[in-house]
């Protein structure tokens, strides 16, 4: 753990909907690391990613992006936020990955188009470019979003539940893409639910239950004791919420 950090968190507290969703979290994601964030529902996993993206303000503490700027970070939100009925072609969606090169008015050159087609081929969707996105399955659409991220050439990649409601075949293919990013020394942080998947593919893990329970090598983090503790803390939220409800008229 002597590596240069990509992102450093210092006593970070972030509120979501007027409740502290992440509190007093300190630590660092080492440069080039592949980290899974796991924890019970409402543990602040998505909130942490949004805070790193600058989409939510920090209440206390700070996030140090060290040497990264906005252009260096790619972010995959949960799929529900995207309008999948929108009349746009697969190729146009993938081309958005060039945003830092084309921006609002820049021309899409033949070379950029070629790269987009190559990215589509890399996620197993060669020849899908002309299709409209509403004709794709959830798994195919997730492949499209991964192709878009391939073009972003980001040094830090944030994935929020990338494999939820995605078929096994697609998950396996996209995990390979994640591994290739890791091999290229890019930093990847993914919010995940499937602990077996985390143990098999992610060397580092952050176990979160609003505050950090454990952070480090996956085998040392995902111990029965730690998981039990995270669950217990999550049950206490429910209890305290119930208590609050009971007190109020």
């Amino acid at each position: 753990m002597t590596q240069q950090p990509a992102i450093r968190l210092d006593n970070l507290t972030v509120c979501y909907d007027r409740h502290p969703a992440v509190h007093h979290l300190s630590g660092a994601f080492p440069d080039g690391s592949l980290t899974a964030i796991v924890g019970p529902n409402g543990a602040g996993k998505s909130t942490l990613l949004k805070a790193i993206m600058g989409m939510l303000p920090t209440t206390t503490g700070r996030i140090d992006h060290v040497a990264l700027t906005r252009a260096d970070i790619a972010y995959l939100p949960q799929q529900a936020q995207i309008d999948r009925q929108f009349p746009i072609t697969v190729l146009d969606v993938v081309l958005l990955g060039h945003w830092q090169r084309i921006g609002m008015l820049g021309a899409v050159t033949a070379a950029l188009r070629e790269q987009a087609n190559a990215a589509l081929a890399a996620v197993g969707l060669a020849d899908f470019g002309r299709r409209l996105i509403h004709s794709l399955s959830a798994g195919q659409f997730q492949r499209v979003l991964f192709a878009r991220m391939l073009l972003q050439e980001a040094r830090l990649i944030l994935l929020d539940e990338p494999f939820t409601a995605i078929d096994a075949r697609t998950t396996a293919d996209l995990l390979e893409v994640v591994q290739s990013w890791h091999a290229e020394r890019r930093t990847v942080i993914a919010v995940l639910h499937d602990l077996e998947q985390v143990r098999a593919h992610f060397p580092e893990t952050l176990l979160l239950a609003r505050s950090g329970i454990a952070w480090g090598r996956t085998a040392e983090v995902l111990t029965p004791t730690n998981l039990h503790r995270a669950r217990q803390i999550a049950e206490d939220w429910d209890d305290s919420a119930l208590l609050l409800c009971a007190v109020q008229p």
Partner: peptide, 19 residues
């Protein structure tokens, strides 16, 4: 504003992330 307008409509999270 065609390009950002379309992106903001179809995938607002992406526009927020890149710009």
């Amino acid at each position: 504003i065609y390009r950002p307008l379309i992106v903001e409509c179809f995938d607002p999270g992406f526009l927020q992330a890149v710009q």
